[in-house]
Amino acid sequence: MTGRRTSSGPRSFWRNNSLTIVFGLLLLVFVVGQAVAGLAEYNESARTDGLQQLSFPRYVTSSSFAVDLLENWQSEYLQFTLYILLTVWLVQRGSSESKKVGEEGRESDEAQLVGAHARSDSPPWARRGGWRGSLYSHSLVGVMALVFLLSWFAQAVTGRVAENDLRLRDRLDPVSLGDYLVSPDFWSRTVQNWQSEMLAIGSMAVFAIYLRERGSPESKPVGVPHGATTSDD
């Protein structure tokens, strides 16, 4: 019997990684768009206040641009950290974003293909078990949470610098990092992003009960009943 042929080369690389590539390109486009719009807004404010305007390279390396960028990044990683973690234990009947009711929890080693139940092509640390297996079992949430914390801290640092730039214009004393962490500016930037992420992820879980997108893995098949959590209910 002849096995299915697998292609190689640039075309197959694109096909195998098209989702990541497209989102990477969209990220680049939107970051550039944010930089262009942010620079225009910054320079308009500088002209009004009689201050020096910035060039594009100077702006994209400034704290003003960095804090706006990072406050969105940290909220996105918080969203997915919480979503991945909470969907281990919490369910929404009928949603394709949820496990079936009754399957809450970490699941058995057999279901997770770890240790003695691992396959020959399972990741090495999943086969070995022990502390390596335990660490690998929580690696996704761990990395997501780490990126969230790092980007949140970077937001605090760059936000403080941007805030002190504004205070310098008004001839006010600069604030320390500790003072900035309890300031209205820091928490306003933070909470306004957090609430929007919770709205998006929560509404997606509910919409997925009743609405469909044919061919998308984020949706149930079009003809599956609303009450079915997965296609085999």
Score class of each variant (00 low, 15 high):
residue 27 L to V: 10
residue 188 S to V: 06
residue 52 Q to E: 07
residue 223 G to K: 09
residue 134 S to P: 06
residue 180 Y to Q: 03
residue 149 L to T: 06
residue 205 A to D: 02
residue 219 S to H: 01
residue 192 Q to R: 11
residue 26 L to P: 05
residue 101 V to Q: 02
residue 12 S to L: 08
residue 91 V to R: 14
residue 131 W to D: 10
residue 161 V to Q: 04
residue 60 V to S: 08
residue 145 A to K: 01
residue 178 G to H: 04
residue 42 Y to L: 06
residue 164 N to S: 01
residue 48 T to I: 13
residue 1 M to H: 08
residue 131 W to R: 15
residue 77 Y to H: 08
residue 147 V to T: 07
residue 201 I to S: 07
residue 141 V to N: 06
residue 2 T to Y: 11
residue 108 S to E: 03
residue 115 G to S: 03
residue 95 S to D: 01
residue 104 E to C: 03
residue 126 A to Y: 04
residue 147 V to Y: 05
residue 92 Q to M: 08
residue 73 W to P: 01
residue 76 E to C: 13
residue 195 Q to V: 13
residue 149 L to K: 01
residue 22 V to Y: 14
residue 102 G to R: 01
residue 58 R to F: 05
residue 7 S to Y: 15
residue 199 L to I: 07
residue 216 S to I: 05
residue 103 E to T: 10
residue 210 Y to T: 14
residue 76 E to K: 09
residue 51 L to Y: 03
residue 33 G to N: 14
residue 59 Y to G: 03
residue 195 Q to L: 13
residue 91 V to P: 01
residue 8 S to I: 11
residue 32 V to T: 12
residue 179 D to A: 13
residue 192 Q to L: 05
residue 68 D to V: 12
residue 9 G to R: 02
residue 219 S to W: 00
residue 72 N to L: 12
residue 117 H to C: 07
residue 146 L to V: 15
residue 232 D to Y: 12
residue 30 F to T: 06
residue 194 W to T: 02
residue 134 S to A: 09
residue 97 E to C: 11
residue 130 G to W: 05
residue 225 P to Q: 05
residue 227 G to R: 11
residue 169 R to M: 13
residue 146 L to E: 04
residue 23 F to K: 14
residue 202 G to M: 05
residue 171 R to E: 13
residue 170 D to G: 11
residue 23 F to W: 11
residue 11 R to D: 14
residue 207 F to K: 06
residue 224 V to Y: 00
residue 170 D to S: 13
residue 221 P to S: 04
residue 48 T to E: 15
